[in-house]
Design a binder for these strands. Structure first.
Length: 136
DNA sequence: GCCAACGTTGGC
DNA sequence: GCCAACGTTGGC
């Protein structure tokens, strides 16, 4: 199983919105960047993804699960989208600032390239962040 | 194929 | 609201 990080602007589509969908999956559409698209295509059903809030909060707030591999984006079929479902909330948000400060997280893509909207997360980074945030 | 110009993103 | 960083576009 691979780990990922998905960015969202909470005032557009936030973690609460995904949580509210419960067992219903949401199409992760709107990705218009080749690097991000390639990561979407590398996703497998069952992979986990951190849910990151940019602009407001600037923190990892929850864990989502990939429920469908990449397929044409319904809003623009020349691009791809996966389906995601809320999995667990974190006990507390793990902020970008914390990732910057943490010696094991300074190499994160989130820290090095915060603009990339779909990112890979290493096993080690995943363990550190879930330990920091705590799984509910 | 290079690179300058432009647009977008996101942290501050 | 500003600006730095990055990606994309288009002229050459």
């Amino acid at each position: 199983m691979a780990y990922w990080l998905l960015k969202s602007e909470p005032d557009v589509f936030g973690w609460d919105h995904l949580l509210a969908k419960g067992a219903e999956a949401e199409e992760w559409s709107g990705i218009r960047n080749y690097q991000a698209r390639n990561f979407l295509r590398a996703m497998a059903v069952g992979d986990r993804a951190f849910f990151y809030h940019s602009n407001i909060g600037k923190a990892i707030v929850g864990v989502a699960r990939i429920t469908r591999t990449a397929a044409p984006d319904s809003t623009n079929p020349t691009w791809d989208a996966v389906m995601v479902q809320a999995d667990f909330a974190l006990n507390r948000p793990v902020t970008l600032e914390e990732c910057r400060q943490h010696p094991e997280l300074v190499g994160m893509v989130l820290v090095k390239n915060p603009r990339l909207s779909v990112q890979p997360v290493t096993d080690a980074e995943w363990q550190v962040i879930t330990r920091l945030g705590g799984i509910v």
